[in-house]
Amino acid sequence: MSINLDVLNRRFENEAVESLLACFLESHKGRIALASSFGAEDQVLTDMILNIDPLGKIFTLDTGRLPEETYALMDQTNRKYGIKVDVYCPDRTALEAMYQAQGINGFRDSIENRKTCCHVRKLEPLRRALSELEVWITGLRRSQSPTRETMRLIEWDEGNGLIKLNPLIEWDEERVWDYIKTNKVPYNVLHTQGYPSIGCEPCTRAIREGEELRAGRWWWENPEHKECGLHLKREKQ
């Protein structure tokens, strides 16, 4: 890795998110993209990126088990901004093999099975999406969960061999929604029904009062396991 992360983080720590994005969108033009799951944070970044560069690249992972509300928002977003978000799907052969091995809902039987499901539906498609990029933009925020508390504004993803940019890492929930309301950004209607974090339909539930924001994701597991693997630090294979 030829970049100095400490220098970059110091340089941009007090910059506006839009300034950070503008700099990276220009310096890595054509080799930078936002990975969107159509959550509130990703919608904020979609709006910012397309205001800076109407040709900015945005992609999503269609796991095949997303809520209908997420697909509706995908369509609404495409129409509002006059774009077509790039869609990456699971490999058919891997998906069929997984069904043969664990059944349709085998992900609930063990953490190992659930991680296999996440690998097939998310990690492998993400690997393909990132393979030609230099910078991966995410909507991660430090306050979302215990597994994200040590993440930085600019990181190096060793497993995928690229820069990982977390522009909203310091934002809180209120700031996200202030931006959405002020700028009339479309959002998933499930957010109004107690779903602050939305993933695959069978792995997501509304949270209860007092629960942390990602408590509704894989709620049958302990908090330290509640990542699909997309944002866990791992060595390059």
Rank of each mutant, 00 (worst) to 15 (best):
Y88D: 14
L50F: 04
R234D: 09
G30E: 09
G229N: 11
K115H: 02
L126Y: 04
I137M: 05
G82P: 08
D53P: 09
T147F: 13
T116P: 00
E221C: 02
A206K: 08
G229M: 11
I137T: 01
E212G: 01
H225L: 03
L168E: 14
E132L: 14
S143R: 13
Y88V: 11
E41S: 10
D172Y: 13
R92E: 08
E221W: 01
L168A: 03
Y81E: 08
S110I: 09
R217D: 04
I154W: 03
I58K: 10
I104W: 07
P186C: 07
P125Y: 08
N9R: 05
A94K: 02
G56K: 10
I104D: 09
R234S: 09
N160H: 03
A94R: 03
S19C: 02
V185L: 13
L20N: 04
P90N: 02
I83S: 06
V7M: 15
T77V: 15
S110C: 04
Q102I: 09
T77Q: 07
Q102H: 01
L5M: 14
V87F: 12
R214K: 05
W219F: 15
L126W: 06
S143N: 13
L165A: 06
M48S: 00
I49T: 04
H119G: 04
G103S: 03
T116C: 04
E211M: 13
R121L: 00
Y99V: 06
E170F: 06
K80H: 13
Y71S: 13
N222V: 06
I180V: 15
T147K: 12
N51T: 11
G30K: 07
D62H: 14
H28M: 09
A97P: 01
S27E: 15
C200N: 06
R92L: 02
E201D: 10
A22N: 05
D172V: 12
Y99C: 03
T192K: 15
E112G: 04
F59H: 08
K57A: 14
P54Y: 07
E134M: 10
L232C: 10
I32G: 11
P167H: 01
A97G: 02
N160R: 02
C203Y: 03
T77S: 12
V17T: 10
G30V: 12
N113C: 04
W171G: 11
E170H: 09
L123N: 03
L165W: 02
R142Y: 13
E13P: 05
K181Q: 12
H231T: 12
K115S: 00
T204E: 15
M74D: 09
C117P: 01
G56N: 12
K184T: 02
D62S: 09
T150Q: 06
L140V: 09
K84W: 06
Y81I: 08
S197V: 10
V185N: 11
E221D: 05
V189F: 13
R79G: 09
K236S: 12
I83Q: 09
T192C: 14
G194E: 05
R92Y: 03
